[in-house]
């Protein structure tokens, strides 16, 4: 695979994330080792409460209260100041949320232009870039609509446009199709896989197994640990590689039916 040659973007080793104190202590992430290379499309699967979203928040530098080490592009996150983390969020990371998370009092184009504000662009430049981005998502006729005037699929496309407007190298998607019907889901997933083809690293959390067909690597989590990782299996245990692959085939069959 070509991913083997490219340098790792994200390296996690012995990552722990604890919530609560004393008796109520609970490990949302319970010792994860993970290496993600540039250009991968990773789907993180698992039941509710297994720590998928927590992991995604940690990867997106929204949560820096962690134990263990997290290196982003070779730099340990623990050594970064909060300001530097914010700058990385601004320049390298794009978020797509299940609940879209658009600012309701801003128009579509203003929402898309929002990340550019923190990059220090002028208003005209911001709106131009946002408009260009919306055009690629065929939403240029909806620029001055408010988020509540759009359908779910359109709203999520706006959210993706916002995530991409800064041209980030990593896109973190937390159940991007969770609130959408299957037709809209399909469109969103096509957009994401398009982005993947253009060389972006995408990490997507989902519990819809059908969506894993778009991914290049599927990680299954349970109780804060990685239960299976298609790539690891493939590399380390050649013999056992059939199990997850066959599972994937089954799933993809399901998806086509």
């Amino acid at each position: 695979m070509s991913t083997a040659k490219t340098p790792p973007v994200i390296v996690l080793s012995q990552l722990y994330k604890r919530f609560g104190l004393g008796d109520a202590e609970h490990c949302a992430i319970d010792g994860i080792d993970l290496t993600i290379k540039k250009g991968e499309f990773i789907a993180i699967m698992g039941p509710s409460g297994c720590g998928k979203t927590t992991l995604l928040n940690i990867l997106g530098l929204l949560d820096s209260d962690i134990e263990g080490s997290y290196e982003l592009n070779g730099v340990p996150v623990a050594t970064m100041s909060r300001r530097r983390q914010a700058r990385i969020r601004s320049k390298q990371i794009g978020f797509v949320f299940q609940s879209f998370n658009l600012v309701s009092r801003l128009t579509v184009i203003e929402n898309v232009a929002l990340p550019l504000t923190y990059k220090g662009l002028r208003k005209v430049q911001r709106l131009e870039r946002a408009s260009d981005m919306l055009k690629t998502f065929h939403l240029n006729e909806r620029e001055y609509y408010y988020p509540h005037q759009l359908s779910g699929g359109q709203t999520q496309r706006v959210a993706i446009a916002r995530a991409l407007v800064n041209e980030p190298s990593i896109i973190l998607a937390d159940e991007p199709t969770g609130n959408l019907d299957s037709r809209a889901s399909h469109i969103i997933m096509e957009e994401l896989s398009d982005l993947h083809k253009r060389g972006n690293t995408i990490i997507m959390v989902t519990h819809n197994p059908r969506l894993t067909t778009y991914a290049s690597r599927v990680i299954t989590m349970i109780d804060g640990t990685i239960e299976s990782d298609t790539q690891k299996k493939r590399r380390t245990k050649k013999a056992a590689r059939k199990r997850p692959l066959s599972g994937k085939k089954k799933l993809s069959k399901k998806a086509t039916t």
Binding site: A86, R87, R89, V103, T117, Y118, R162
Partner: peptide
């Protein structure tokens, strides 16, 4: 509050 969360997620620092 939610808007603050969004702004932080898209790259606003505490100072901003």
């Amino acid at each position: 509050t939610r808007e603050i969360g969004i702004r932080k997620a898209v790259g606003a620092s505490n100072g901003d």
